[in-house]
Nucleic acid binder design. Structure first.
Lengths: 160, 160
DNA sequence: GCAATTTATCTTGACGTCAAGATATCTGCG
DNA sequence: CGCAGATATCTTGACGTCAAGATAAATTGC
C-alpha cells in the first residue's frame, strides 16, 4: 500500500466508473521520476552543474575530440527547443565551460566547443553521475534492472 | 538500436572505464517521461488545465464531498513546495475553479474548496485523462503493464 | 542569376518551480 | 498566564523551459 495505492483507492470510491490501472502505473512513474531527478540533480550540483548543463557538456564530451558540435546537433540529442538551447549555451559560455566558434562552412551557424575546463568538469561529473545512477537502481537485482530496461525500451519505441 | 543505445555507444568509445548500463535504463526513463508528459499535457490543455492545476483539482475531487482540503493537505499529495502550491491555488482561484475559505479552526490556515465549475471541469478532465493513459500504455500487453508497475513500485518504495 | 523557400540560431515574453525567508497564529511548558 | 518554538501559508527573486516569431544566410527551382 504505497502512496499511489491510496490515491487509487480514493478514485475507486469517488469515481468507480474509471479503470485506474494505467493511472497507477503512470503515477508511480511520475513520482519516481521526481525522486530520481532530485537525487541526480544533487550529484550535478556537487560539480557546479545542473542536469541541463550536464546534458550539453555530455553531448559534447561523448562526441569525441575535438569536442565540438553545432547548436543544431545539440538540439537533436536533448529534446528541448532552440530557445532553451541558446539559453543553456549562454550559461555555459558565461561559466567558461564552452565557447562559441565561428562555423567556417555556414555563416548562419556557430560551433560550440568544450573548453579544457569544460572537459575536466564533465569528465569528473560523469564519473560521479554513473556511480550515483548505480546507487539509485541498487534496490533492483540485475535481472530486474534488465526487465525494466526492456519494458522501458519497448514503450519508448512507440514515441521515437 | 534506439536513441539511447547510440548515446551509450558513444560513451563506451570515449569513456570505456564507465559501466553505462544504469545510464541506459535511466536515459530511457527520462526520455519516456518527457514524451509521456507532453502527451498527457495535451489532454489537460483540451480541458483548459495543466498537469499542475489538474493535480490540485484531482486531489480535491478524489477526497470526496465537500471537496475541500487545506493547502497543507494538498502539499502532502503533490511533491511541490509551499510557494508552488500558493501559486497553483492563485491561478485556480483566478480561473474560478477553487475558492479560499476561512478555516474556522485555525486562523493561520485556509480551506481550498472546489467550485461547481471546478468539479465539472475536473470530472470531465479525469475521464479523458484516464482514457489517454490507457492509450499511452497500449503498446504493452496486460502482463507487461503489470510487470512494469511492479518494478516501478519496488523502486519507488526505496524513496517513500 | 535571382526570387522564394528553407534552415540555423537567437530573442521575447509568459509560466511553473524552487529555496529562502516573512508573517501570523497556535501549542506546550514552566 | 506568558513566552519560546512549531506550524500554516504567503512572498520574493532567480531559474529553466516553451511557443512564437525575428534575423540572417544558404539552398532550390525556374
Amino acid at each position: 500500500m504505497d502512496h499511489v495505492d491510496k490515491i487509487l483507492a480514493q478514485w475507486r470510491r469517488e469515481r468507480p466508473d474509471l479503470d485506474v490501472s494505467a493511472m497507477g502505473l503512470l503515477g508511480r512513474f511520475t513520482r519516481l521520476r521526481t525522486h530520481l531527478g532530485r537525487e541526480i540533480e544533487k550529484t550535478f550540483t556537487d560539480h557546479g552543474l545542473t542536469s541541463a548543463s550536464f546534458d550539453v557538456l555530455a553531448a559534447l564530451r561523448r562526441s569525441g575530440p575535438p569536442f565540438q558540435l553545432s547548436p543544431g546537433d545539440l538540439l537533436a540529442t536533448t529534446m528541448v527547443t532552440s530557445g532553451t538551447m541558446t539559453n543553456r549555451i549562454d550559461q555555459l559560455e558565461k561559466a567558461g565551460l564552452v565557447e562559441r566558434l565561428d562555423n567556417p562552412d555556414d555563416r548562419r551557424g556557430v560551433i560550440i566547443a568544450l573548453t579544457s575546463e569544460g572537459l575536466k568538469r564533465v569528465d569528473a561529473a560523469v564519473s560521479a553521475h554513473v556511480a550515483n545512477q548505480h546507487r539509485l537502481l541498487s534496490e533492483l537485482s540485475p535481472q530486474e534492472r534488465e526487465a525494466l530496461d526492456a519494458l522501458l525500451r519497448k514503450l519508448l519505441a512507440a514515441f521515437e
